[in-house]
Computed example of a mutant assay.
Amino acid sequence: MDCSCCTRRGLVRGALGLGLACTGIAVAPAQVLGGAPRSLAIQRVQTGESFEGAYWRDGRYDREALQQLDWLLRDPSMEEATPMDPRLFDVLAVIARQMEATEGYQVISGYRAPETNAARARESRRVSRASLHMSGMAADVRLVGRESLGMARLAAEMQLGGVGLYRRDGFVHLDCGPIRRW
C-alpha cells in the first residue's frame, strides 16, 4: 500500500481530522495522534529484541517504556545506549497509523556511537558525519507489509522531520530533526 493519505479516500479522511498530512503543511505528531495512548511495535534486526506497547499515556511519556526503547535502539556494536528523543517515536507512531500498519517496524539502525558513525562514514558517502543517529534523533526502519517508497513519500509530505529513502537496501531513514529529504 502506497501513500494512502494521498488517495481520494485518504483526502476525505484527512478532511475529517488528519487533513494536514497531504497539504504540504508541517504536521505536529500530537495533531494526528491526539490524546490517546501512543504505541509502537518494533523489532531490532541485529538482536531480535522487540518492544510492543504504549510509550505515551495519560498525557505524558512513560519513562519505563522510553528506557526499554532506548536500549532496543542502542548501538549494538558498542552495546551503548543513549536517551532517544521521544519525538522520534511520535514520528514512527504517526507514520504507522497513517499507513494503517498492522505489523511493526524493523529497526536497522537507531543510535550510533560517534565511533560507529565515523567508521560507517569512512565506508560510505551515504553516511553523514554529523548524523542525527548520534543524537538519538534518527532511525533507519522498515515497516513490515508496507512499501518503503510509500512510507518515504508519506513522511516527506507530512514534514515531520528528515526522510531518506534507501530503496536498494529497502529501508527509510526517519528523524525528528529539520525537515529535509534525500
Rank of each mutant, 00 (worst) to 15 (best):
R126G: 13
A139M: 02
L143G: 12
G104A: 04
G150E: 07
Q106P: 00
A152D: 10
I108C: 08
R120P: 02
M99T: 09
G170L: 07
A138T: 01
A130P: 00
E157A: 15
L143E: 11
R146D: 08
L174P: 05
A155Q: 11
P83Y: 03
G136F: 00
A81V: 05
L165N: 05
R142F: 00
R120Y: 10
E123N: 12
T82N: 08
T116R: 06
A118Y: 05
V94I: 08
G136N: 01
D75T: 06
D140H: 02
C176I: 00
R168P: 01
L92C: 03
A119V: 01
Q106S: 11
R129L: 11
Q106R: 13
S148A: 15
R167A: 14
M137V: 00
S109N: 07
C176R: 01
Q106F: 06
S148Y: 00
A96H: 05
Y111H: 12
R181A: 15
V94T: 10
R153T: 11
G164D: 04
G161V: 00
L154N: 14
S131Q: 09
E79I: 04
L160H: 07
Q106L: 15
R87S: 13
A93K: 04
P83N: 02
A156H: 09
Q159V: 03
A113L: 04
F89M: 05
S124G: 10
L165F: 07
F171V: 06
T82I: 08
L154M: 15
R126M: 09
D140A: 12
R120L: 15
Q98T: 11
E123W: 05
A130W: 11
V141S: 09
V91P: 05
R129P: 06
S131F: 05
R122Y: 03
G150C: 03
M84R: 03
A156D: 12
R180P: 08
L174S: 08
R168N: 12
R126C: 05
L160Q: 12
P114Y: 06
M78V: 03
Y166I: 00
V172R: 06
M78N: 10
M78T: 08
F89D: 01
L143A: 12
N117T: 02
G145K: 14
V141W: 03
R97G: 15
A121R: 13
W182V: 10
R181S: 15
M84V: 04
H133M: 04
V141M: 04
R125E: 13
D90C: 11
R120S: 13
L72R: 06
R112S: 12
R97E: 07
L132W: 07
A139T: 01
R125I: 10
R180K: 14
